[in-house]
Design a protein around this nucleic acid. Structure first.
Lengths: 249, 249
DNA sequence: CGTCCTCTTGACGGCTTTCAATAAAAGTGG
DNA sequence: CCACTTTTATTGAAAGCCGTCAAGAGGACG
């Protein structure tokens, strides 16, 4: 599935567009003890509050992480797609901060968080890349915060669809306006703070507004420019600037 | 204002409870070129989308960062208190991701993001601490996401009050149940996705429920245990575990 | 001492949820 | 591949939470 040997290893490959890894870095990444594991669609990968010594790289498929609230409702915290790093919170916490579920059949590579140590010690630029990756994720979280806090339901649905499409394009560059969204409307609702019923209504509104089309779980963005306005979308990746990084070793 | 020479320098001092910095680390931090700057209450510290080469340490006072949406509404992304790091997103982005405003009179220390480079190169454990700090902040953001997505207004207000009280205690350990919240109800609303009017109503509900008391901007948490339940609060700091860190140099 | 900002309260309206029922799709066992 | 079961999507009606609008009171600030 790749050409450069490290794609989807530890770093979002989008970051690798900005730096060419050295042989030393590539070797260090390749040397990490990765354990491959498969999960079926719907399978529970890890439960919240379990001990969480492992960090995952999603090699294939989709997954999501959620947290349960005391009233039984749940909030999906992040949607993971091929190449994403999962559970880096384990670098700071001993217990899992979210429950992980496979959205499609999935292949993950796991490594113990202790493997981060030699990386930080010998490869400052890789450490910095991990750090930057974290900052970008914080940016995406604050975008969602603004969406949940200040946007109406239709905008939130639009934002989710756009986000998925755009992220998908970095994984599968041939993705155009049409893609498959392997989530139920209930899961979409749990992601953007709505009920399944209202997600359904908003999708049909977007549809009748001529903004999207749907067939099963296939979605087509008919007017991406207008969706971007409605969703108040910002493309964080277009604004990356990591000129300060250390030299690669 | 401090005793150990590095407090409030680059790292959330809460992290420093878990590691004793070496002399080399302390020296490296002290050697950073920090520029002190003062702002008056209400002053604009930095505007969103401006070039943002600097990272700040809030040395004194409170501030917040917000983003404006296209409809003119705003979302406060984070509330900063003494000791907090501000604008670490600059490590990944050239342009500021939020507008910064001083909530009280404020003293900040600024340094260029380029100063991170020698830190990462020579002090892997400091790099790792920065990384962990970022992960903890991601955790706090996901907590707020769950709050905005899945909790009613009263719970969100309770969550904000609790969060402030608990964070304040790490800065001013003598803080008990009573503290001063230097925000208007409109700012509170912009933080938790409500209108000022509804914030007001919810505060009075909490008050008449015997959960809090208020006098001006002084708030007293009368029943913290019950507030924790209502807010679905988790104390992230109690669950820290950073046993994997590299040795200090 | 006047002006502006913030807090407070009531009435009303709208967006979203809840409840309920049916259709459509997906999964299961034979 | 079919019959059956379960999940998911869809739609309508009603209720509720929160927003909007408006007005007055209380404070902060110059």
């Amino acid at each position: 599935m790749d050409g450069n040997g490290v794609r989807g290893t530890v770093f979002d490959e989008r970051l690798q567009r900005f730096v060419a890894l050295t042989e030393g870095e590539t070797t260090a990444l390749a040397a990490m003890d990765m354990q491959l594991r498969r999960f079926r669609r719907g399978a529970l990968i890890r439960r919240e509050h379990e001990t969480a010594p492992h960090i995952f790289i999603l090699r294939q498929g989709w997954a999501y992480g959620f947290t349960l609230l005391s009233d039984g409702s749940r909030q999906i915290l992040k949607l993971y797609m091929t190449g994403d790093t999962i559970g880096m919170a384990g670098a700071g916490f001993a217990l899992a901060t979210e429950t992980l579920v496979a959205l499609t059949d999935v292949v993950v590579a796991m490594f113990d968080r202790a493997a981060l140590r030699p990386l930080f010690e010998a490869h400052p630029r890789l450490a910095a890349l991990l750090f930057v990756q974290g900052e970008v994720e914080k940016g995406m979280l604050t975008d969602r915060l603004a969406s949940l806090g200040r946007q109406p339901a239709r905008s939130r649905v639009a934002a989710l669809l756009l986000d998925v499409a755009i992220r998908l394009r970095t994984v599968e560059p041939w993705t155009g306006a049409t893609f498959t969204l392997p989530m139920t409307q209930e899961e979409i609702g749990d992601m953007i703070g709505l009920t399944a019923v209202h997600v359904n209504r908003m999708m049909r509104v977007l549809e009748s507004d001529g903004l999207i089309a749907r067939t099963g779980h296939k979605v087509t963005l008919l007017d991406e420019a207008r969706l971007i306005v409605i969703a108040n979308h910002v493309d964080r990746w277009a604004r990356l600037d990591i000129g300060w990084l250390p030299e690669g070793r």
